[in-house]
Computed example of a mutant assay.
Amino acid sequence: MRTDLFHLIFAPMLYCLWVGGAVSQSAETDDWTRQKCDLYSAAWQDVEASQDMAGVSDDFLEKNRNFIALGCPEGMRICAISPEDIDLANLLTVLSMNEGMASTFVPFGCPD
């Protein structure tokens, strides 16, 4: 009987604490994801305004713009092919890391 009373009284409170913590952590994660995308977008705009894009492939440029427009979806990959694509990918990776993002955030990767 005491066990049933305990579950009746405390289980709902523990559940609320557990769910509330998960929701709070999820909201913080979503905020950081949005912030990372905003930072990447700002870096992209700075790079477009200040760097010579000669030699950067149209496909690489278009896919980066799409990555930002779609909200920087996880799992989207952009393959840097030309030396200029690779240089730009490296620059964006360093800029992202300078903002506190892991290098895994950037969308660069090629199929095997």
Rank of each mutant, 00 (worst) to 15 (best):
D52I: 05
I9W: 13
P73C: 01
Q35V: 03
E28D: 09
L17G: 09
N66V: 09
I86A: 06
L61T: 14
A27E: 14
W44H: 15
L39F: 02
G55D: 09
G20R: 07
A43D: 14
G55F: 08
D46V: 10
Q25M: 11
A49H: 11
S26Q: 15
T29G: 02
E84T: 11
C79V: 13
Y40D: 00
Y15K: 00
D85T: 12
C37F: 07
C16G: 12
I9M: 13
K36F: 05
I78Y: 05
F67T: 04
E62H: 12
I81Q: 06
A43P: 07
Q35M: 10
Q45L: 14
L39I: 03
R77H: 04
D59G: 01
S26P: 14
A27I: 14
P12H: 11
M53Y: 06
F6S: 05
W18G: 04
D31Y: 13
D38Q: 02
E48D: 01
Q25K: 08
L8G: 07
S24A: 15
F6Q: 07
V47K: 06
R77L: 05
S24N: 15
D85A: 10
I68P: 02
G20A: 10
A54D: 13
A69C: 00
L8M: 10
W44Y: 15
C79M: 13
D38S: 05
I78E: 07
I86G: 06
E62T: 14
A27V: 15
A42G: 10
W18K: 03
A22Q: 12
L14F: 09
W32K: 07
Y40N: 01
T29P: 00
L5G: 04
L61P: 06
F60P: 02
W18F: 11
M53C: 04
G55E: 08
S50G: 15
E74S: 12
